[in-house]
Amino acid sequence: MATDDSSSDLNRMQRLSGVEKATILLLAMGKPLADRIVKRFDSDELKRVASSASTLRTVERPVLDRIVDDLVKQLEVGIGLVATPGQAQELISGVVSEEDAAQILETVNGSSGKTLWPRLSRTPGANVAKFLMQENSQTVAYVLSMVAPDLAASVVAQMPAAQRNSVMRRMLALKPMTDAAAALLEEILAENLLSGVTSDGDTNLQAKLASVLNKLEKQQMDEALKSIEAVNPKGAKLVRGLLFVFDDIVKLAPEARAKLFDEVPSEVTIMALKDAQPEVVEAALGGVSSRARRMIEQELTGGAPATKKDVQKAQRWIADLVLDMADRGLIEIGGSHDE
């Protein structure tokens, strides 16, 4: 049945004319952005779009998604025009003074993605999630691949499971975006998300996705991995090798555990071990001094109970420290996350 629906959506999209597809996209993107595009149309183009809008029937979400995906694919192929800073200077030369032209070019060059993504990474996750949850999964995947892992994890954690898993699958298979498409997306983000707010290959994609997954709760991580594994088993296996959760300390070499727990405050170790399996407790205690071990064991047997949230926070803190120490070359992880 799902296959029939998908085929029907594809057939309807293929029957749409170019003008109808353009009209649908303009209506979907909202008036502020559509106005900026429509003002570049000539009178004949405006009449054709207006006529199309007046006769357009209801467009189901799957059809809209296919139209957006088709546009993204065309943008990935590229267009036959490449602008340069020199052309930009030539464009405004003679229109404004040389001093004003220099200031304009400096502003334009400074507003590129080099400054957008760090700014976006400092934006509250709730704001970014609210904006991106209304966008196509392909767009969301690209944006999350460009921002800091902490923000990406915060965003996907707030998404419904189906959307979260779809975005994760697309992140793993993400292709480079053309400069023109990236510039358009960055402009939209800067205008609609940042206003008023104070790819290097498959290996990098896997590392980026692992960085996001490492910040999620274990249940969310497992759900995302299962979803990825269903469509890309090889990619899922490679990503698993880059993951690390607290229970994986049993896979660390004794020397690595000793270095790790030398950096962990005793109170954090105690909290993290409150809800741990016996083999995990033993592995952790094997990395501390005899005196610290006796004190921790005493707290675990007679100390006050802890909330699940506090335990998970302590475990995540230690897991993050492991990843940080591995990045700095202080220890080797060596193992992988198992379900």
Rank of each mutant, 00 (worst) to 15 (best):
E297V: 06
V95Y: 04
W117R: 10
A152I: 07
P278S: 08
L81W: 02
R119Q: 15
R164H: 10
A230P: 01
N11K: 14
N204D: 11
Q220Y: 05
F244H: 13
A182L: 07
Q298P: 00
S195D: 13
L216P: 11
Q277R: 15
E186G: 11
M177I: 02
L238A: 11
E20F: 00
D35V: 03
A180T: 12
A236V: 04
G30C: 12
S52C: 01
R328P: 00
E267V: 07
S289N: 06
L120M: 11
E187V: 04
V212E: 08
R293M: 09
D70H: 06
H337P: 07
A314P: 11
A276H: 07
I331W: 14
V128I: 11
N165C: 11
S166L: 08
L26G: 02
T307C: 01
L243P: 12
S17F: 01
R293A: 13
T123H: 05
P278I: 03
G287M: 10
E279Y: 02
S17R: 04
L144Y: 07
S145N: 15
I24S: 00
K208V: 09
T198A: 13
A304V: 08
Q138S: 09
D320P: 04
W317A: 15
L120Q: 05
G125F: 04
V49L: 10
D338H: 14
T203A: 15
E106Q: 14
Q134W: 05
